[in-house]
Design a protein around this nucleic acid. Structure first.
Length: 263
DNA sequence: CGTGGCTCCTGGCGGC
DNA sequence: TGCCGCCAGGAGCCAC
């Protein structure tokens, strides 16, 4: 799940719950999720400090530790955060537990362990090392055209490639293409100026709309694809059965009527 | 540069 | 019922 809009919701969640509280204890419950940092170092750099402010870039969340370093969080397919008081409420796949002096806890829960937690001295360097493209939400149209120029891949692949632009995943690339009326396997270099503009505008619209819904697909507008994005699902506009194909190894859903294949 | 295949990991579901 | 393969919202690596 965790794409840009989910991570933005997590960021706001951390802001609302976990800042400016003394950290008493840090427990690494599954060291597999640690990036280039040991459990000992993570504990040493966080214990006794406070989380100060947050940043998001693409699908990464950065939490600044007072006067020191950034905690970096990536959520893989199944990662999420939970702030709670009673330890009985600890989520089932807690991999990192931060306990505050006020008795509350912040859990990084990640069933499939495909996420990554680490430390970074500098966010800009971190982004460079990961070779992330510009954040999809910050991108302007001029830059958008520039980064797509000369590319030969499919539009879905291009939207999802974090090195080209950062933040869009499999699910929301489907929504963006549905709203823009573009078939997922259309080659990027076949999109004319008008189509590029439409793709860009819908990318922004969809991401902003989803963030305004707190990334909860239940709250999305009626004409959105996502609530119907499953086997046998139907287009919310024309009731056609949605097609399901593989694009770049990922499952794509689209409406054959609203997203006609154009070569 | 792009594509397809494999890998990491865990768990739910459908089919036999 | 029980077991097994398949699949899942991320992403890196490799061969071609």
């Amino acid at each position: 799940m965790p794409e840009l809009l989910d991570v933005e919701a997590f960021r706001q969640y951390v802001d609302a719950t976990s800042l400016h509280k003394s950290i008493e204890k840090v427990e690494v419950k599954s060291s597999e999720i640690l990036g280039n940092v040991s459990a000992q170092e993570l504990q040493a750099r966080l214990a006794g400090r406070k989380l100060q402010f947050t940043r998001r870039y693409g699908k990464y969340l950065f939490v600044h530790v007072v006067n020191d370093i950034w905690l970096t969080l990536h959520f893989g397919m199944t990662g999420r955060l939970k702030y709670f008081k009673n330890i009985e409420e600890e989520p089932a796949h807690d991999r990192l537990l931060i306990s505050f002096a006020n008795g509350f806890h912040l859990a990084y829960d990640c069933q499939r362990k495909l996420g990554e937690v680490s430390l970074a001295e500098n966010v800009e360097n971190f982004i460079k090392e990961k070779d992330l493209g510009p954040d999809a939400l910050e991108l302007d149209f001029k830059t958008f055209k520039k980064i797509l120029k000369g590319r030969r891949g499919t539009v879905k692949y291009t939207l999802m490639n974090q090195h080209i632009m950062a933040g869009i995943g499999n699910v929301y690339s489907d929504e963006i293409l549905f709203q823009a009326g573009i078939h997922p396997t259309t080659k990027v270099n076949k999109l004319d100026e008008e189509m590029l503009k439409r793709l860009f505008e819908e990318m922004k619209n969809v991401l902003r709309t989803a963030i305004n819904c707190q990334a909860d697909s239940q709250n999305l507008p009626d004409h959105y694809l996502l609530p119907h994005r499953s086997k046998g699902g139907r287009c919310p506009r024309c009731y056609s059965e949605l097609e399901r194909i593989k694009v770049s190894g990922r499952t794509a859903y689209y409406c054959p009527k609203h997203q006609e294949k154009k070569l």
